[in-house]
Simulated assay, not measured.
Amino acid sequence: MQRPLYQVADVLERNEELLAQYTSNTWQLRTLHALRKCRTAALGGHIDRCNNTQCKQLHLSYNSCRNRHCPKCQGHQREQWIQAREAELLNVPYFHIVFTLPDTLNRLCLYAPKAVYTILFKTAWGVVQDFGGNSKFLGATMGMVSILHTWGQNLSLHPHLHCIVPGGGVSANGKWKYAKNKGKYLFPVKAMSKVFRARFIANLRTELDEPQSYYDTLFAKDWVVYAKRPFASPNYVLEYLGRYTHKIAISNHRIQSLANGRVGFTGKDYRKGGAKTTLSLSDAEFIRRFALHILPKGFVRIRHYGILSSTKKKIVLPLLLAEMGAPPKKQESRPILHRRCPRCKVGTLVTVFMFDSRGPPKHWIKKLKQQHRTPKIKTA
Rank of each mutant, 00 (worst) to 15 (best):
S61N: 10
N181E: 14
V189S: 11
A34T: 04
A179Q: 01
C65R: 12
R358E: 14
H59T: 13
W151R: 05
H304D: 03
S233A: 10
K180T: 07
G242H: 07
C70H: 09
A291T: 06
D356C: 07
K313A: 09
K366N: 07
Y270S: 11
G143K: 00
R254E: 01
K114H: 08
Y226W: 11
K190A: 11
E79W: 02
P361Q: 08
E16H: 12
R66A: 13
G183L: 00
L321Q: 15
K114Q: 12
W223Y: 09
I201K: 09
Q2W: 11
G75Y: 05
Q80Y: 11
G183R: 00
A124I: 01
W364I: 14
F290W: 09
N52S: 13
R262Y: 09
Y62H: 14
M354D: 07
K177A: 05
L120A: 03
H33F: 08
S309V: 09
R49L: 10
V165M: 00
G306Q: 02
G267R: 11
T141G: 01
P335A: 05
A202P: 01
T104S: 10
R262N: 11
A191H: 05
K194V: 07
K376T: 10
Y305G: 04
K376G: 04
L89T: 03
C109D: 05
N252Q: 13
Q129Y: 12
G261D: 10
H162Q: 13
V116T: 03
T277V: 15
W151D: 01
A291H: 00
L204P: 00
T348M: 04
Y236K: 10
A227M: 13
G359P: 07
Q370L: 14
R3W: 11
L18K: 15
L43H: 10
M324G: 15
E210S: 06
R340Q: 09
C163K: 01
M144C: 15
G139I: 09
R243T: 02
V263M: 12
R66I: 03
E16W: 10
N203E: 12
Y111P: 01
R197N: 01
K330N: 12
C73A: 12
P102A: 08
W125R: 05
P335T: 13
G267F: 10
R39W: 04
S257W: 09
T351M: 06
R303H: 06
K345D: 04
I250M: 06
K313D: 08
N52M: 08
I164M: 04
R334T: 13
R68G: 01
L29D: 01
Y6T: 05
K312D: 05
